[in-house]
């Protein structure tokens, strides 16, 4: 079982699919089923929230004097 919070979106979706499949199979004992249901509901909340609040971030990257990336203005972007 994954530990604690903050799974990536991809891992959250994967876990969610697992949970639904396990619940659907009806094999989980009641205790586990309840825990799964709760975890699944939580994942749906966080995934939806992640989609809701996502705002595109655009950066322009240039190599600095030492070659390491330096962020620059995206001047001519709409």
């Amino acid at each position: 079982m994954p530990t604690k919070k903050q799974l990536s979106f991809e891992d959250s979706m994967k876990r969610l699919e697992e949970i639904v499949a396990r619940l659907d199979s009806g094999e989980a004992p009641l205790e586990e089923a309840l825990a799964l249901f709760e975890e699944g509901s939580g994942l749906i909340r966080t995934c939806s929230a992640a989609l809701d609040k996502a705002e595109q971030k655009v950066h322009k990257l240039l190599p600095g004097p030492d070659g390491a990336p330096v962020e620059a203005e995206m001047e001519e972007m709409p």
Binding site: M13, L16, L23, G26, A33, F37, G40, I44, S48, L51
Partner: peptide
């Protein structure tokens, strides 16, 4: 599509949980 997928999973979760 991801919203739709989440919605679908939500309904299945509710159904599976409710059925149980």
């Amino acid at each position: 599509e991801e919203y739709a997928r989440l919605d679908y999973l939500k309904r299945r979760l509710a159904k599976a949980g409710g059925e149980r």
